[in-house]
């Protein structure tokens, strides 16, 4: 039964009740009052039922889509949001380490290239200034030959490391999907909670309940120096700095 239909029923009952009372039919009037009660209970039961069902659905729907065979094995092990978020940490950590491995592996290679090239350049300059003996020149051509071979090998290695760094960024896709799902669940839960709160306030209105809200308001006052993690919207906040220059300015104003 829709809400409108319930409302219509209530109006109907109320009218009947007035008619019955005016005509002095107390017995029938009592019966109508009890129908009114039932009608109200029914609305509440239905609302609670609906909400429970949608909450249950949203939790059940949160099982990851295992139709993708690649992800099936890995994903089927994960049953809840915190597992999923741990998976995100794990993936990003692995990718960061892989990237740093590649960078650490590449740095000495490019340093070696630079060093050898710069040594050759100074010898080459001597040749250009005609300061080189024929014997030194023969040595130099050998060195240049060696360098050209190394340069090919080493730049191939740099290339392959760079492409591995590129591939290590695939975590963005996988973690993005997982995070999107978590966001979706949070939204669904939030929506359902809002519905619950709305319904609770309706119940309060019907029953005339009043709550002491002073306690809940206190909770919003957080510890001003408690850790908060990265600030995602520094431009929208007055109490945070947005870059290192701001930090330096603040510290120097304190006499640092």
């Amino acid at each position: 039964m829709t809400e409108q239909a319930h409302q219509d029923n209530l109006v109907e009952y109320a009218k009947t009740l007035v008619e019955q009372l005016e005509s002095g039919d107390a017995k029938e009037a009592m019966r109508t009052i009890s129908s009114l009660h039932n009608q109200r209970d029914q609305v509440l039961f239905q609302e609670v039922g609906k909400l429970t069902r949608s909450l249950h659905e949203s939790i059940k729907n949160f099982a990851i889509d295992t139709s993708n065979s690649e992800m099936r094995e890995e994903m089927s092990r994960m049953q809840d949001a915190s597992d999923r978020l741990s998976y995100v940490i794990e993936k990003t950590e692995t990718a960061a380490n892989k990237t740093m491995d590649m960078v650490e592996n590449t740095m000495p290679v490019s340093a070696h290239l630079r060093e050898t090239a710069s040594n050759l350049k100074s010898e080459w300059d001597r040749l250009m200034r005609r300061e080189m003996t024929a014997d030194e020149f023969r040595q130099l051509t050998k060195k240049i030959d060696g360098f050209l071979c190394t340069a090919v090998d080493e730049s191939t290695r740099i290339d392959s490391n760079l492409s591995n760094i590129m591939l290590a960024q695939d975590y963005q896709d996988l973690t993005g999907q997982v995070i999107k799902r978590v966001i979706q669940l949070v939204k669904e839960v939030e929506d359902n909670l809002v519905n619950l709160v709305t319904m609770a306030s309706t119940i309060d209105q019907i029953t005339g309940l009043k709550h002491d809200i002073s306690q809940t308001q206190n909770k919003s006052e957080e510890d001003p120096i408690g850790p908060e993690g990265p600030i995602i919207n520094p431009e929208a906040r007055e109490d945070v700095v947005s870059n290192q220059d701001d930090v330096d300015a603040l510290l120097s104003s304190l006499g640092f």
Partner: peptide, 29 residues
Amino acid sequence: TAEAKREQIIEAAQAGVNGYVVKPFTAQA
């Protein structure tokens, strides 16, 4: 640290920190 509230920086300064770098930071910083 990523902690970037003014009160936190002041707190750290009062506690005797010698320098404060906010994440994300550069090698230069």
